[in-house]
Write a protein that binds this DNA or RNA. Structure first.
Lengths: 202, 202
DNA sequence: CGACGGTATTGAACGAGGGTCAATAGCCCT
DNA sequence: AGGGCTATTGACCCTCGTTCAATACCGTCG
């Protein structure tokens, strides 16, 4: 049951551990990813993990960061396309990613919400990249900016996330319809900002 | 340092522990709410907690459920108002709640995302109540239902949540403006569903 | 008003899991 | 082939959740 000691280069070992960590998220949540389990799966001792990561938190952060980098890379739109097509293909790629990596993706979203400030930052950075892509396309999409634009785009992103998660678990419309809905919701929300705000009661 | 033993009725004790749990969330995240800390603050031994709750998870769930019940109660709209006013006053109450209970609120949202299935259920139930209120008002708001309505209302709720959290941390518009934006976004999003979906590339 | 009994409460003990470190042994280099 | 650098180990400690038999508070009844 005990493995022979195998000596790898630091880079190789680190990569192995991160890759393994991400793949384990397919069947486990982040806080079920214990040092014990990882060491067992990697065929190393628990102690070794601490040569590569300061503690479990930092390891978790590194794993989540790797997963989000992967997600961002896979959803990068082709810059030669026009803004509207970038939006819809970006949404399609995002949807595909969530569909085929549901558990790791949920770990990202969950981790975001966990108490850990750094995990939350990783998540917010990732969302920032996604919304940044939109923000950059605003002019080309025929939309204008206001004080609330950033806020609303972030809100729209949250809506996309929630909707996609719900849809993957229970598809109530076709994939193309969903993409169409979400794409249409973006200008709809931003236009809502331009109509005067109604004063609230009292 | 050790307290004299105090014997309370089960109901009183349970209430005390739940109330204390909720109030401790004001300065701590859910997973920083340890048995040790709670026992210390309550002036009881750790063991006692296990007469009232099966384990820590169940205690956490009970605390979170209490916090969400509180939130739902405080944001219940006056049924004698018309639908649009219910919407805006409901949003205003929600905003007020998040403002004055930011940390406990974040614990709810965070817990939702944590690995715990039951915490997620509590969160989804709470959101379900909020969106149910909207769903019930749809006709009165002059909106129509389609296959995607539920999905989009959930999405809109996620947008509200995200936007409100961002806004509380960095108010970039006035409170009334924010409420106006969010209220306007609801019909905007639902109308977007009615325009035909654009087919996606390829 | 005092003892008595039910049960709320305790605290010591256990186990699981994170974190540390001096000792060990693979692999590359000459 | 041997030696040295350092990747790797495994035993140890500590924190924290959890259990349970023993204890003592408080309402009740004589």
């Amino acid at each position: 049951m005990s493995h022979p000691r195998v000596r790898l280069s630091p880079d190789t070992r680190r990569e192995q551990l991160l890759d393994l960590g991400v793949s384990l998220l397919a069947t486990r949540s982040l806080d079920e990813l214990s040092i014990d389990l990882l060491a067992e799966e990697a065929g190393i001792s628990r102690g070794l993990l601490y040569h590569y990561f300061r503690n479990k938190q930092e390891f978790h952060r590194a794993v989540v960061r790797r997963a989000t980098d992967d997600m961002l890379e896979r959803t990068t739109p082709d810059p030669s396309l026009d803004a509207l097509t970038r939006l819809t293909t970006g949404l399609a790629a995002y949807l595909d990613y969530v569909e085929s990596n549901f558990e790791p993706f949920m770990s990202l979203v969950r981790g975001a919400a966990s108490g850990d400030r750094f995990l939350r930052e990783i998540y917010e950075d990732a969302r920032g990249v996604l919304t940044g892509r939109i923000l950059d396309s605003i002019g080309e999409l025929g939309l204008t900016r206001s004080a609330a634009t950033r806020l609303l785009i972030d809100g729209w992103a949250a809506m996309v996330e929630e909707t996609v998660i719900s849809w993957v678990q229970e598809p109530s419309v076709s994939k193309d319809q969903l993409i169409g809905l979400l794409a249409a919701a973006l200008p709809a929300v931003l236009h809502a900002a331009e109509s005067p705000a109604r004063p609230v009661g009292a």
